[in-house]
């Protein structure tokens, strides 16, 4: 029987989901770590953000990979969900999903959809203005040294977005809770999809996944709440 080719089979698609998930997991760790600097030092946060915003490897290699990873992850996620949905068109009259699987594992499509909606808001808030600033308006962040519109404008921008805007703060916090729920299953699931499972390492991966799914969203929540509360 012929091979189904790239992404043709169930397992290949799951592998692609897992690979993009692990990339996004690493990305979230660095994103949270850098953002956390804003709580402790505005200058350090600006310095690091400036570095990330101008270093060619991040801008022209990692950023396109990240965009591709995000697109692949959610498009493939919806394709997989549609296939799964169509594999059982007549539903059970009585189905007790909670008897044998966690809520997180059964609702990845919904937690993922909330995160996707949040990405829309997040891009509107930070990424689109940043791209417009650099690539549309063509402002060179190395030359300008003003406050709000310079290469070191990042801290000001972050503070400005959470200045008295309780709705934005709540939307961010709720989204991060959904991110935690998504990661709680996604972390260990990614390893399983790649076939990485053993009696020795799987319990460690599970604990690491639980810790990661709590600490990373909690870090983001602390950042959002800190910048809102300190401007009241």
């Amino acid at each position: 029987m012929a091979n189904q080719g790239l992404l043709g089979s169930t397992i290949a698609r799951k592998f692609a989901m897992a690979l993009s998930a692990l990339f996004l997991i690493v990305f979230l760790l660095q994103h949270m770590s850098i953002n956390m600097l804003s709580v402790f030092s505005a200058d350090t946060f600006n310095e690091v953000s400036h570095f990330m915003g101008t270093f060619w490897l991040v801008q022209y290699v990692m950023q396109p990979i990240l965009i591709f990873g995000v697109l692949l992850h959610f498009i493939l996620g919806f394709i997989l969900e549609y296939k799964n949905w169509s594999s059982r068109k007549v539903k059970y009259a009585n189905y007790k999903g909670s008897a044998n699987a966690s809520w997180m594992s059964r609702n990845m499509i919904y937690t993922g959809a909330v995160i996707l909606l949040f990405l829309g808001l997040h891009f509107y808030d930070f990424w689109i203005p940043e791209i417009a600033h650099k690539f549309v308006e063509g402002k060179d962040s190395f030359i300008e040294n003003g406050v709000a519109d310079s290469g070191y404008r990042f801290y000001h921008e972050l503070r400005h977005k959470f200045d008295g805007d309780i709705v934005r703060m709540i939307l961010y916090v709720v989204s991060f809770i959904f991110l935690g729920l998504h990661l709680n299953h996604g972390f260990e699931s990614a390893f399983q999809s790649m076939g990485a499972r053993s009696k020795k390492y799987t319990p460690i991966i599970k604990k690491l996944g639980t810790a990661y799914s709590i600490l990373i969203p909690l870090g983001f929540i602390v950042i959002a709440v800190y910048h809102y509360v300190t401007q009241l």
Binding site: N84, A101, S105, Q192
Partner: peptide
């Protein structure tokens, strides 16, 4: 359908077949 690693199959399997087998199949297939 596609496996999303919920683990429900392992719980409901009357013979207690382990998810280890799915991981092995994934490895072998890849």
């Amino acid at each position: 359908g596609n496996c999303t690693n919920t683990g429900a199959c392992e719980v409901e399997c009357p013979k207690g077949i382990s998810l280890d087998n799915i991981a092995r199949m994934n490895r072998e297939y890849l």
